[in-house]
């Protein structure tokens, strides 16, 4: 696993501190070229992994990296699925069943459609989930995706419902079909770790908010620190800067100083910020941080 991952919130109008800032970013990254420029700059700084939602606009990024494999021979994608707004909006508009039907693959293999129909009728969540995962993964065909993540909105919904089998279904399918490691994004690290352990998912890759002010660390910052030190899992820290509430050096010092954090994902819009953050991390973790852990 890469130790420094590039995130994508800034590209899609997501900022946890200011709606105005989020909107300005959405305007700036309206063009694919603007997104690619930032990714290329990050690549040239040694950040060779893009952790991205399966937002429809990521398909354009995938096309570009597929077409320029010679320039980015070692680039990897860490897809995070699903892009939840797409589903949430569809459920609001069409109701749950109709929304589900719309997201099952339509084109191509007739078999998939039939399989989907049968799965729906039998309430076979495993069959439906596999089809939805495959639909989300389509844009990454031919690209390297060593880790595939379940987005926090889904992870945490399943955790709350106690729908535990779903984690196993997801893990098994991404391993079998994509040769990838399953990853789980969560806002509820303590609850997730207990659940995965009970399911026998050993040494899981888990991405959670880890920051000095405890922002969106449900269960409390002390509990997170305790788990990082004591439990066997591969932690990726996100929201390290808490959307800008913590200064870069202070934020990086805190997270890099924690026992158990194996990687950091961060997003930035300017080359200067990418460089600064990457160098701060390298200072703490050593220059090889951009490489594999």
């Amino acid at each position: 696993m890469q130790r420094v991952l590039f995130g994508d919130n800034q590209f899609f109008g997501i900022n946890h501190m200011s709606d105005e800032k989020a909107r300005a970013q959405a305007m700036r990254f309206q063009s694919l070229r603007a997104i690619l420029d930032v990714l290329e700059a990050a690549y040239d700084e040694g950040i060779k992994a893009f952790m991205c939602t399966t937002h429809e606009r990521v398909a354009g990024v995938c096309d570009y990296f597929r077409d320029h494999a010679d320039r980015f021979p070692d680039y990897v994608f860490y897809p995070c699925m699903p892009y939840a707004h797409k589903y949430a909006n569809a459920v609001t508009e069409h109701g749950m069943l109709e929304a589900l039907r719309r997201f099952l693959p339509e084109e191509g293999a007739l078999g998939a459609l039939v399989r989907g129909g049968v799965s729906v009728a039998r309430k076979d969540v495993e069959g439906i989930a596999k089809l939805l995962i495959d639909a989300e993964m389509k844009m990454f065909a031919g690209l390297r995706t060593p880790v595939i993540f379940l987005q926090n909105i889904v992870t945490d919904l399943l955790l709350g419902l106690g729908f535990k089998d779903a984690f196993g279904i997801f893990a098994d399918h991404v391993r079998a079909r994509y040769g990838a490691e399953p990853g789980f994004i969560t806002m509820n690290l303590p609850l997730l770790l207990d659940t995965l352990e009970a399911l026998g998912i050993d040494n899981p890759i888990v991405c959670a908010n880890i920051n000095k002010i405890g922002f969106r660390m449900s269960g409390g910052i002390a509990k997170y620190e305790e788990l990082l030190a004591a439990r066997r899992f591969r932690a990726i820290a996100m929201s390290v800067f808490a959307s800008g509430a913590i200064s870069p050096r202070e934020a990086v010092d805190y997270v890099c100083g924690l026992e158990g954090v194996q990687a950091i994902v961060f997003g930035a819009s300017s080359i200067a910020n990418i460089r600064q953050t990457n160098r701060l991390i390298n200072e703490r973790w050593g220059a090889a941080a951009g490489g594999a852990a």
Binding site: I153, D156, N188, I213, G214, R216, S218, G220, A242, A245
Partner: peptide
Amino acid sequence: RYTTDLTPPVWFYLRGE
């Protein structure tokens, strides 16, 4: 003042505190 310092933590997070 921003949400990051105005929002008390919750025991379980889904979609928003």
